[in-house]
Simulated scan of single mutants.
Amino acid sequence: MTSAWSALTKPTSFPLRVRTFAAFPAPRLFDYDTVTSHLSVADAIDAVESAFGALAKGQVDVPMPMHIGVAETPTAGPGDCHIKGGYVLGAPTFTVKLACVSFYKNLEQGLPAGSGLFCVVDAVTGAPLAVLQENRYMTDLRTGAAGAVALKHTTLPGQELRIGFIGAGAIARTMARASKAVRPHFTGMVYGLAGADDFANDMHDELGLDFTVAASARELCESCNVIYTQTPGSDTVLELDWLQPGTTIIASGSDQPTKQEIPNDVLKASKYIADLIKQTSKVGELRGALQAGVMTEADVHAELGQVVNGDKSGREGDELIVVDLTGTGAQDAAIGQVAWDKLRNL
């Protein structure tokens, strides 16, 4: 009779494998200066558009974002950490991203309020290939690329565009650059509580387009047929009766349940397009309309990838369109692959 112990210790016919965690080379580290000097929003647009198309076909694994709130105490915070990631079917890499925002005490020390990094991973071996210290630069690029994709599919080639930017920060600048990449000829207007004059002057010099500063959000809305909103607060930034027929609103400021830029009556009146319904219903503009009972998920016209694929319509006439961009792991996977392809041979 064979004992349990002897059975466990009996020689086997297959070789024993010793687990080792030192077999993979260390991931390459790319610092902020390297990332920012080699990547632009124009690099990301095609990849992000393709990722949205794949997302709509169910070909992207995108988990819900994780949020870590760092409450203010004598030893920490305040701040927020967002973790996103995704894998596009057939891609050689996948990406996990960590973005830290609203660490406002950093300003007292001369440090930025946000930081972040991307980890690009080999989809064959599961080994990390690169850590990119991008401090939210790549996040801004993929957000701007999504804005460009939305603009491309909700306006018409050759249409006279007057593009307004509510909020004059880093994302607004990226949106302006992205807009130029897909609709090269437009006039711009900006309204912001701070930095609007610098934004208008800098974008005029960089893009070679006319930019003016609006005295109010209402003036901007009444003057523009495309409006980008990218504000950090929880207050809505426009009203329905300020908008022209045929306006496109591309909203990217809401990424957690405490934020809402677009009033519920505007959302209800619009052809509403989500980047990803399972996110916009929880942390995007759609969340407010659902909670107020003025919309259901059945009122959603499309996800952006469905418009990219031609399965749902974009701009058809003078309808009001709202595109709700909360940021998806598909975009992070796309920009991660772009970055690795551009930087790996440095």
Rank of each mutant, 00 (worst) to 15 (best):
V300R: 05
H185E: 14
F211T: 07
S252A: 15
G329M: 06
G314M: 05
G69V: 11
P27I: 07
T187E: 15
N225P: 05
G288W: 05
A200D: 00
L89W: 09
Q59K: 13
P74G: 14
D43L: 03
F199V: 08
D202G: 04
L39M: 12
T328C: 12
L240I: 05
V35D: 02
I45A: 01
Q279Y: 01
A333M: 05
A7R: 13
A170C: 10
L238K: 06
A330M: 07
R218S: 15
Q337V: 06
M64H: 12
C221P: 05
R315N: 01
I171H: 01
G288F: 04
V121Y: 11
L343A: 06
F199T: 08
P63D: 05
L304T: 04
L141D: 01
L156W: 12
T174V: 14
Y32W: 06
A215Y: 07
A123C: 07
F52E: 11
P78Y: 01
F211W: 07
M295L: 12
Y228V: 00
V322A: 10
G69T: 10
K84C: 03
T296L: 11
K57N: 13
A333Y: 02
A217N: 11
N309H: 03
A178E: 03
E261W: 09
P112Y: 00
A22P: 02
A196I: 00
G114I: 00
D210V: 08
E319S: 12
M66G: 12
L325V: 12
A26R: 11
G192Q: 07
D299T: 04
M203I: 00
D46E: 13
G85C: 02
K282S: 06
W242T: 07
C224G: 09
L39V: 15
R17A: 15
K282F: 04
A26Q: 14
G192I: 11
K282I: 06
G147W: 06
A76R: 10
C81R: 02
A333E: 08
D235M: 10
C100F: 06
A123T: 00
Y32S: 13
V62D: 01
K268S: 13
Q337D: 11
G192C: 07
V300Y: 06
T248Y: 05
V283T: 13
L276I: 15
G147V: 02
A47V: 09
M203C: 06
S234C: 10
A22C: 09
L98W: 03
T248H: 10
P15Y: 02
M189Q: 15
C221N: 05
L29F: 13
M175H: 13
S270T: 02
S40I: 04
E261I: 14
D241F: 10
D43W: 02
G53T: 04
V124P: 11
M295H: 03
A274L: 10
R287D: 15
Q109C: 09
M189G: 05
D210C: 13
L290D: 01
G336A: 03
V307E: 07
S6V: 12
A302R: 06
L325F: 08
K105R: 08
S115W: 09
I171V: 15
M66W: 05
Q337W: 08
K268I: 07
D332Y: 01
A269W: 00
K278V: 13
G164W: 08
C224W: 08
I227F: 08
A181K: 07
A56S: 12
V307R: 07
G90Y: 04
R344S: 12
L16F: 14
V121F: 12
S179L: 03
Q133G: 13
A251H: 04
K84G: 00
T155I: 09
